[in-house]
Write a protein that binds this DNA or RNA. Structure first.
Length: 263
DNA sequence: AATAGGTTCAACCGCGAGTGA
DNA sequence: ATCACTCGCGGTTGAACCTAT
């Protein structure tokens, strides 16, 4: 087992996650989303901190996550973006569907940093300027900049295409959202993508009161927050609860299904 | 086969930003 | 204005794994 297995002073488990814990966390989030990380572990039945649950979900359990085997294209994207942004791992990760910031950070530290350093050394005789691999370059790095061009599409950059100044209209985004498939064929649309686009009650009004008096029968160790009279539930909007990531639709479907069963 | 040293990567930690009371 | 709390980010750690000797 990796990294200090055991429990902390609060009795919360630390170290590597077990299959059972993964299953519990995944099952819970699939059904109810991650409405509050600090309370979620209790409801999901795992003895972990909310922080640990969030990390596990974001880095490993989220759907469509890729693991290992970075492609040459992905490497080039990371190098190019790191050259522009520096250690903004989450920003870089947002441009690489299926990759977590942690994974990209590890990739950079274990492989790409050396590669860039090596490339710079190789080109050093022609170009005397030195760039610290960990720092963003104030100008374009001649070694890597020509490797990749990007096109911004729904907040994501894809290699091998030129940047387009125009973005998708809100109508397009909405139709993609409602069809459950975005125009890039990716399911990685984030709430942030819609921050300036979304208006209307559906996205901001709480839907919880509709089911607050209902008791949802759950199997296994899943506890629903919906049958607890906690104030935080009534403060949570649909947006908070469900528009968390690519799990929006399965979660919303589950909600609708649960509600139908209740009624 | 044993083992020392290097590498990888999942997970932990601390901090700052944002938010609401 | 202040406090409490959550969330997310980036740096760091350390056990497992790999490779060279």
């Amino acid at each position: 087992m990796r990294k200090g297995s055991g429990c902390d002073e609060n009795g919360l488990k630390k170290g590597a996650w077990t299959e059972d814990e993964d299953m519990k966390l995944t099952a819970y989030i699939k059904r109810y989303g991650h409405w509050n990380w600090s309370l979620l572990p209790k409801f999901a039945g795992v003895s972990r901190s909310g922080k640990s649950c969030r990390l596990r979900w974001m880095n490993y359990l989220r759907p469509n996550m890729k693991h290992g085997n970075f492609t040459e294209e992905e490497d080039n994207v990371i190098i190019s973006l790191h050259n522009k942004l520096g250690n903004k791992w989450s920003t870089i990760a947002s441009k690489l569907p299926g990759r977590s910031d942690n994974e990209i950070k590890n990739r950079w530290n274990t492989h790409l940093k050396k590669r860039v350093k090596h490339d710079q050394t190789m080109s050093g005789s022609e170009n005397t300027r030195t760039v610290e691999p960990d720092q963003p370059s104030p100008e374009v790095n001649p070694v890597v900049e020509t490797d990749v061009e990007f096109q911004q599409e729904d907040g994501m950059l894809f290699p091998g295409q030129s940047e387009s100044p125009s973005s998708s209209s809100s109508t397009d985004l909405l139709s993609c959202w409602f069809s459950g498939i975005d125009s890039a064929g990716s399911s990685d649309l984030t709430p942030q993508t819609f921050d300036d686009e979304m208006v209307g009650d559906f996205w901001t009004d709480s839907f919880i009161p509709d089911i607050k008096d209902s008791s949802i029968v759950l199997g296994d160790n899943l506890w629903s927050p919906f049958n607890q009279d906690h104030d935080y539930m009534y403060q949570s909007s649909c947006l908070d609860m469900l528009m968390t990531d690519e799990y929006l639709w399965p979660t919303f479907d589950t909600y609708v299904k649960d509600n139908e069963e209740i009624n």
